[in-house]
Design a protein around this nucleic acid. Structure first.
Length: 582
RNA sequence: GAGCCGGUAGCUCAGUCGGUAGAGCAACGGCCUUUUAAGCCGUGGGUCCCGGGUUCGAUCCCCGGCCGGCUCACCA
């Protein structure tokens, strides 16, 4: 029997309960429960956020002092037991002592709290009055809620707990004299931390002021057979967080926040394009030629056709075929696959949005990009300035623009002619810069490496690097003023290449020449050089209007917005080696 | 792919200069009708990642492997 479940000795009690429930004719996994509200909506209905930057001074007795990652959390309570949480870095606070704190009034996980609080003196506001201002009386409103039981405090003839759904957490309160003796002992006997339950009852506030559901009836909705991660420290083990993301999402509010942010970003992005007349399209992921970017593809095999297929490294060439086909504005939001290393900023599958606009050039695209970023930031984090790893990034348009070779000259003292015509000198420079394989790299790769080494690290604020060398950009249109260059820009933020864009090459003969160059590069050992796509050339021969196109890396954008330094923290199920060999 | 670091109870961690291990939370049994990291009393729980070697004896030392993290290389 135990083999049926993934069990450890300490879970035997839960499995015994499950079996006992079934013997009583109670289904531990019932079909349905009528839920009236999301927990977060209930909280929003009765709790308002204090204005930003509001400082208050309060006095009370420290009921508990707990260490947090940075400082302390104090439960401060007045004579009537009304409580407020205080987050402070003050040392030496003792439970039972009276303190006066000044701090910013904010809501943390639904509870009114003082942030960045400091000990102070002077006129204080009553905790009760502050709370009454922002926490409204729910007036015994009747609701029916569903969620996971994440805290449980049994007190004899009453039980407190918290249930949690994606939108929030709320306290529940069971009383023996309200639910009845039989139900009360059923709860005590069969309901465990981690179970999914449905509860019906009336909302009220406890003496301490916490919004609470007084339970009149409840129902077990799904038994949890494993103990949850620790309630105070959460789930820290990164391996478990990635492999069992559901546990991360249950235990760590930051994880929930990040993925909700990602979701909001993606829907805002869609809305932004849709409102501007872009058509969302889907192009092949299985491709016969992997082109459109410089990268190694994953190879797979089609049994019926008896041929290799490649997972796309970019949708670019298909999207441009659609421009030829008369779709003037298209975008595709989706996964690309690149068979390369895995590290903090690279996952084998990653998300990009690529979009193309007929009749535009890359100058139009820069303005559009500024507008797009402003929109996304406004709608996700609510500000054009964000903090990333201690640096303030300012996305207020216009972004800085700097020419590729101007930046190189500033950093190395060498001009465009040096980089494009003096291969030997360039190789020497690469050697001085300790660039790996400087003696084997192709000319194009050498320029690219030197640029990355000397220039990218300093580009922190949003910057358009413009007018790339043609050698590096086989799909971009030759610069109207300089045949060595193409009309291309990258948007670099915090040293990440966040976007890559150009006026599209629409001259089929030029495109063919560029592909042939790429094939030469490949023969010279550049594994990532592009393959020829004959049908794409044919499409261009039918005529592609002047077009500008851009790709934006979504994962890295989410990293910036959520202030995380690991791509794995913004991908729900990042790539991992298998845990079990069978 | 290389170098460095790590893997101890369900979770968060401590520890053993080589004598098979502890705490808090969680669990189990009690007490408690406004608690909230609830509290109090009691109990159980470990292939110390896996395999081999050295040793009277290995969770600890050595070798190999698996998984993870960081750095580097490739890439976005």
């Amino acid at each position: 029997m135990k083999k049926l479940y993934n069990s450890f000795p300490m879970e035997e009690a839960r499995i015994r309960k499950l079996e006992a429930l079934r013997e009583r004719g109670i289904n531990p996994y019932p079909y349905k429960f009528e839920v009236t509200d999301a927990i977060g909506n209930i909280r929003k209905e009765f709790e308002t956020d204090p204005p930003e930057g509001l400082r208050v001074r309060v006095r009370g007795k420290a009921k508990r002092v707990s260490r947090t990652e940075e400082g302390y959390m104090v439960r401060l309570s007045d004579e009537e037991n009304v409580e407020i949480l205080v987050f402070t870095k003050e040392e030496g606070l003792k439970p039972g002592e009276e303190y006066t704190f000044t701090g910013f009034l904010v809501r943390v996980e639904g509870k009114l709290s003082l942030k960045e609080a400091e000990l102070s003196e002077g006129e204080v506001q009553s905790i009760r009055e502050i709370k009454e201002k922002y926490d409204k009386d729910p007036n015994r409103k009747r609701v029916s809620l569903g969620g996971r039981l994440v805290a449980l405090r049994s007190m004899g003839k009453a039980i407190f707990g918290h249930i949690q759904d994606l939108t929030g957490k709320i306290q529940i309160y069971l009383r023996k004299d309200i639910v009845g003796e039989e139900n009360f002992s059923f709860f005590n006997e069969f309901i465990d931390l981690g179970d999914i339950i449905g509860v019906r009852g009336e909302l009220f506030r406890t003496n301490t002021g916490e919004l609470t559901l007084e339970v009149q009836s409840f129902k077990l909705l799904a038994k949890c057979l494993h103990p949850l991660p620790e309630k105070w420290h959460g789930l820290k083990d990164v391996e478990v967080r990635y492999r069992q993301r559901y546990l991360d999402l249950i235990a760590n509010p930051e994880a929930r926040r990040t993925f909700l942010l990602r979701s909001r970003l993606i829907s805002e992005l869609r809305r932004f394009f849709d409102e501007r007349g872009f058509v969302e399209v889907e192009t092949p992921i299985l491709q016969t030629v992997a082109s459109g970017a410089n990268a190694k593809p994953f190879v797979t095999y089609h049994n019926y056709l008896e041929m290799n297929l490649y997972l796309r490294i970019a949708p670019e060439l298909y999207l441009k075929r659609l421009i030829v086909g008369g779709f003037p504005r298209v975008y595709e939001l989706g996964r690309n696959f690149r068979n390369e290393g895995v590290d903090r900023t690279h996952n084998p599958e990653f998300t990009m949005v690529e979009f193309y606009t007929a009749y535009w050039d890359y100058n139009d695209l820069m303005r559009f990009t500024e507008e797009l970023f402003a929109h996304i930031l406004e709608k996700t984090v609510g500000s054009l300035k964000i903090n990333y790893e201690g640096k303030e990034l300012d996305f207020t348009p216009p972004f800085r623009k700097v020419r590729y070779f101007e930046l190189l000259k500033e950093k190395t003292g060498k001009d465009k002619d040096f980089f494009l015509r003096d291969l030997e000198g360039l190789r020497k420079l690469a050697k001085e810069l300790e660039i790996n394989n400087y003696d084997k790299l192709t000319h194009a790769k050498l320029i690219d490496k030197v640029f990355e080494k000397v220039a990218e690290g300093d580009l922190i604020q949003p910057t358009f690097v413009i007018d790339f060398p043609k050698l590096l950009s086989p799909l971009a249109k030759t610069h109207r003023e300089d045949p060595d260059l193409v009309e291309r820009f990258e948007l670099i933020v915090a040293s990440y290449e966040l976007a890559n864009a150009y006026t599209e090459l629409n001259d089929p003969a030029d495109q063919k020449k560029r592909f042939i160059e790429q094939i030469k590069e490949k023969e010279m050992g550049d594994e990532e050089a592009m393959d020829m796509d004959e049908d794409f050339i044919r499409a261009l021969e039918y005529g592609m209007p002047p077009t500008a196109g851009e790709g934006i890396g979504i994962d890295r954008l989410v990293m910036l917005l959520s202030n995380t330094d690991t791509i794995r923290d913004v991908i729900l199920f990042p790539h991992m080696r298998p845990q079990w060999s069978d």
